[in-house]
Design a protein around this nucleic acid. Sequence first.
DNA 1: ATTGATAATTCAAATTGTTTGAGTTAATCC
DNA 2: GGATTAACTCAAACAATTTGAATTATCAAT
Lengths: 386, 386
Amino acid sequence: MSSQTRHKGSNAERSRHRNRQAVLGEIHRAGAIGRAEIARALALTTQTVSNIISELCADRMLLEVGRRTVGRGLPAMQYALNPEGGYALGIEVRPDAVFAALLDMHGAPVTTARVALTDTHPDAVMGQVAGLYRDALTQVPAARSRMLGAGIVMPGPFGVTGISDQESDLSGWQEVDPKTIFEEAIKLPIVLSNDANAAAMAERINGVAQDINTFAYLYFGAGLGLGMVQGGQLIKGAFGNAGEIGHIPIPGGKLESALSRLSVQQHLQAAGKPVSDIETLEALFEARDPDLMIWLDVAVAALGHAIGIVENLLDPETVVLGGAMPDNLLDYMIAHVPLPEQSVANRPDNDRPRVQRGTSGRMTATLGAAALVLNSALTSHISPAL
Amino acid sequence: MSSQTRHKGSNAERSRHRNRQAVLGEIHRAGAIGRAEIARALALTTQTVSNIISELCADRMLLEVGRRTVGRGLPAMQYALNPEGGYALGIEVRPDAVFAALLDMHGAPVTTARVALTDTHPDAVMGQVAGLYRDALTQVPAARSRMLGAGIVMPGPFGVTGISDQESDLSGWQEVDPKTIFEEAIKLPIVLSNDANAAAMAERINGVAQDINTFAYLYFGAGLGLGMVQGGQLIKGAFGNAGEIGHIPIPGGKLESALSRLSVQQHLQAAGKPVSDIETLEALFEARDPDLMIWLDVAVAALGHAIGIVENLLDPETVVLGGAMPDNLLDYMIAHVPLPEQSVANRPDNDRPRVQRGTSGRMTATLGAAALVLNSALTSHISPAL
DNA sequence: ATTGATAATTCAAATTGTTTGAGTTAATCC
DNA sequence: GGATTAACTCAAACAATTTGAATTATCAAT
């Protein structure tokens, strides 16, 4: 079944809804901003913005943060998002554990949690997920009445049986519709995504890509994923499986066999140095372990290749690197990656870094899951004016 | 300068504009359709659609095509696009020639023309372009008052001096803004694009991708280009240079050194068989020329590689192949390409062909340039309902 | 052949949300 | 201190869609 891309018509009510979202997005972008300035940015009248803002204030979505004097004229009252105005739940399902995070309106995590997963069948997972949600609401009771929705990150690819790695596969999920069962388990609007897309959204809501509308996120999960954002919207593909960059063949095999957590683990395992967690990997790198450095040599070459593909295909403002790798390793890779000359990003006047590290941490994808929800609350879903 | 992706607010007037476009798009998609059905598709009331349609009829954009009886009830009056309701100009600027086409509302070419280009400086090109536009209007006087806009296809990449091939470069264009000077030369709204994106739009308006919202077009120009359409919209990248797939390195060099018109020409040249036009190439293939078959062996391997990249990154419904190659060669390549198994498109239930040939002809990009204009007239630019 | 159900369409009134224009407030500039 | 500038508010006007009742034409069943 292909992605249903049927546009809907517009009416007054839907206009209001979009304008509300656009106002929220503008405030998010600016941090604190006055009504007249919002009106100019959105090509609306101050009156309209005023109406919307008084509504949002009544809903406790906004806070007045004092007047700011810029030049002449009446100083504008500044408004900012009320962090407690809305919450988004992020859930990440991995084969061995489920992560949860509750984000406030600023995109800051207010609770995080993790439970081990012994049974990966849908019913068992739903039980854990419902429990995590319950716990989060217990810790932050104020969120109960202000939930915007939940983002779910699961191992993909979806609907593909041909090439899935057994390792990353969850059993018993073939015949269920994830969105439906999650909606039943936690009564919230659900957004489903893969880890790389979620990570990209995390960067956009609260990270290095905050003002960047078109960028790519190379994500180290079990394999190698790619989240692409063009004009503030994720590129999902026809079946939601866009960004499977790990499968792409490169001279020595497929990309993720040289560039992934699994790859480094296997390499070190073969060298008699089994590594199961990131801390060990971090320590090995601190010690400049020769076997790890050998892997890195191959990995940065593959990374250069991957960046070339992404830059030439998407022409992004920047490529963000992150995921299940220690920061020092990511920084090393960024410092030593051979950036391809044959790339549309290799332009003389390009002052932005072509590659940068994302806000790190193992929770990136979980936070990103919630960020998907925040993003849809903060963007108006109207294509930019031409 | 990055792509300005600032959303605009909505008001009654803009709602009407979008609804008009959505109605036109729905009629285009259906061919002939009744008002109530449009209303259901767009989640509007029949009354609203009725108002919009009577306006469009008054503007001569629509034709009544009789009533159609489906089941019970009053048979619905069917409406279709009036082909003469609007026209779009397509201009393709190549280093050696300028092509022009005038398309009617159905996307059918009503005039096509070509002039050789001896001087590629902007002023000279503008003179030729203005002349082609004048000629087109002379041949189709009815179009004069009903022009929707002009699409321009030019060699890219834009704003990149680092990696442009001299061959495909136009001289004297570094310091001008193409959009501005085209707008001056022909007083019409201008859309700029590269050849691959235009070709993709041609397929979507009037070709094999008519009902496909997410697909990719691999375009043989001088090099190898890629047009990506996701949810009915082109993926342009931050600076308009998305889809430069030709630059991507593959085992034997960069992709377009194995897979492009230039590549086959150079290969045959080296074998003592200079080929300058498509007909010769077609004839050589008909004769199964051994040198050409050698090139093809390498080319289909490269094509398989390219398809793997595109499928895994975009997850399209299909990949369309076309451009400056004879049809029989394209068909051969499609029949013999080694489709990668490591691809999200390699799914058991996929009944659609993974690769297909586009509506061919050397004019694809020129027609596509005009199709860009038609597309923007027929789509409402609202993101799909979630 | 008549009657009832169904579906498209139209008309007029109600509704929603934005815009317009006049007037108020509070800052800077001279 | 007065003129200018800019943000903001109020009330009325405006533009579009929606609502609900009435009309028309077809199918299906009696």
